[in-house]
Design a protein around this nucleic acid. Structure first.
Lengths: 359, 359
DNA sequence: CTCCATGATGAGAGCGCTCTCATACATGAT
DNA sequence: ATCATGTATGAGAGCGCTCTCATCATGGAG
């Protein structure tokens, strides 16, 4: 039923060593022999026993993907599925497996001990690491390659991939400025999370580039939830902004609700730009102009970085920042001003299924 | 840096065998010796090398979770995250790891060969298996335990866990009947998918129990998407139903849109009950009465079944059907009729955060 | 006191693979 | 012809663990 190297060797009339060479594509095997061995392997459906191989190579061909439980809600946005797909596809192509860990704090110690110390995984990819992730430090000390998806500046030795949150925030804000809005406020994310910090920094940079000094009450902090966006927008109303860059679509949806309740029209009375391009952003009223991140790519690149460290035995950390993309819909008011030449080239029209923006 | 059994044995002044006994909780070790060995293990942070152990035990302590790529969209509803959590938690408790596979057809063969034949996993859990899933058959032939989440009647030997879709459909429909609606139509799911078939069967059973013969044009088939629900509802309008059981919340949202366009009020002109209790069901206008499935539990039970097969070496397939729960909100009209005694006991009020239904 | 069941321990084989080293043979330079 | 070089192959050790079997001590029954 289940063959071993030994048996394949016997069937092919060669030694175990030779079969091993064939399997591992070692050059020094006569083509004729190589053929014969492959044929037999295919015939009997032989597959090397993973554990036996791992034992001697000291590699499991398994990469751990750690998702801190802190963010269970966010799971319902397309972020995690997409990034997981990117990771999975890239791993699959390279012959690796994906071990998923949805860790809550009490499970962390156990996971660390079993999976990391027991060498179940060859390395780990950590999603949206909190500023102080004990697992990252431990893996790092353990000598296991780690890549964080999402900026992780704490541990100097850790590689990460991130979307350009600063650039995205800046792009969104400049888009509003270019459309003629001048009192551009923002609903920022929590300033304890890297995306929250970075997108706000982008907002500030845009205003500064345009010589505008934001009043402090133009900045309201939300918590990346719809409810948080709703509250933040209500606080913002007294500052009478004419446009708002909202650091997440979920918050933008809350903001839209608050505006509707306040009797303000979007974008006539107030323009809105969101962030993330969640599925629902195209169905809000009005559809949300937003910033799209290369989520799938984030996953793929994380795998590239990790396997590079792993296979080339590189230890220096690497950082990759991927560009974001503006998706123009109705909430920013741009669609009402079609034809203004100064927009050309700045606005992307690749907004999935929507009729293209007619420049 | 990384210790082996041998070294622990030396440090403890015993043989390798004894240390192995201690680790595997074999009774025949003197308490005093056991203590000493554990202390040293803890001191040096020893963890057995997984591959070495797997090689001799022929067990990897890894369970594969296979999600066919056919359903990438559905990923954005809370189903997958919740079921994955259930699986993960249950596996973690039993000392197993979760290997995730987001398989698209071209990857299937490779996965089968590497993961199943290479004995990387001890068994697999398949999510929403299509009616003809080659992986299930193969794993089964391979002698690997398989559990399907979602009914999978094709392979007689395969265990599965499922929510009670028939019961849920029936409960939803009877709820509408009990509220006094008589022309109760349905938007069914695709009749190629088990949930689609089962929920429709529940609908039929409810009508039959009430002695009502549904007209054929009371039944419209959708594809579980919002657009499909919209189209189905438009088709249904000519039949002039007064209530509709919609086999998924997503479709129900499309249906609501169609009704709004047709100028019909919900629930005054038409009552709606959905299915799934997705996050958004509480935010629709009006909030959706719907059927909630024990998704997290589905995952946990799947693990139970799988590990039972695995560890007790049971081969007979097992089937588990978990009950569903009705979540009453505004769309069915029940909230407008508070006080009718005949509802009591039939309606659950555990609808997360919503004010309880006051019976 | 002897006998044998029972408990505690160690020795050693072996899981299925990779990889180093030794060997045999072919090839080309001298 | 001689030797260095390179290629193809096999023998065998060893990865770190588990588990069977042998050994020895212990202690109650006869």
């Amino acid at each position: 039923m289940n063959y071993t190297l030994e048996e394949i060797a016997r069937l092919a009339g060669v030694s175990r060593s030779t079969v091993s060479r064939v399997i591992n594509h070692h050059p020094n095997v006569r083509p004729e022999v190589r053929e014969r061995v492959w044929r037999i392997i295919r015939e009997v459906g032989y597959q090397p026993h993973a554990a036996a191989r791992n034992l001697v190579t000291r590699r499991s061909q398994i990469v751990g993907v750690v998702i801190p439980e802190t963010i269970p809600k966010v799971f319902s946005d397309p972020y995690f599925p997409a990034v997981l797909r990117g990771i999975f596809d890239a791993l699959m192509e390279r012959g690796y497996h994906l071990m998923l860990s949805l860790l809550s704090p009490p499970q962390e110690e156990d996971f660390y001990q079993r999976a990391l110390r027991g060498r179940v995984v060859d390395g780990i990819i950590v999603l949206s690491a909190q500023v102080t992730d004990p697992l990252i430090r431990r893996a790092y000390e353990e000598g296991l390659p780690v890549v964080s998806i999402g900026r992780y500046p704490q541990e100097p030795g850790v590689s990460y991939v991130d979307a350009d949150n600063v650039g995205g925030g800046r792009m969104a804000t400049e888009h509003l400025l270019r459309l003629g809005w001048r009192r551009v406020a923002t609903i920022a994310g929590p300033q304890t999370m890297a995306p929250g910090i970075d997108r706000l920094e982008g907002y500030r940079a845009a205003l500064q580039a345009w010589g505008i000094r934001p009043s402090p009450d133009w900045i309201a902090e939300g918590d990346f939830t719809e409810a948080g966006g709703y509250m933040a927008m209500r606080r913002l109303l007294s500052a009478r902004p004419d446009a708002v860059f909202v650091a997440s679509d979920l918050m933008a949806m809350g903001a839209l609700k608050a505006l509707r309740e306040a009797g303000l029209r979007v974008p006539e009375d107030m323009a809105i730009v969101g962030y993330d391009d969640v599925e629902l952003a195209q169905f809000t009223d009005p559809p949300l102009t937003t910033v799209r991140q290369p989520i799938y790519e984030l996953g793929r690149v994380a795998v590239q970085l990790l396997l590079h460290q792993l296979e080339e035995d590189v230890r220096e950390p690497q950082r990759v920042i991927l560009p974001t993309e503006l998706v123009i819909r109705a909430s920013c008011g741009a669609l009402r001003q079609i034809g203004m030449p100064e927009w050309r080239g700045d606005l992307a029209s690749r907004n999935s299924g929507e009729p293209g923006f007619p420049y």
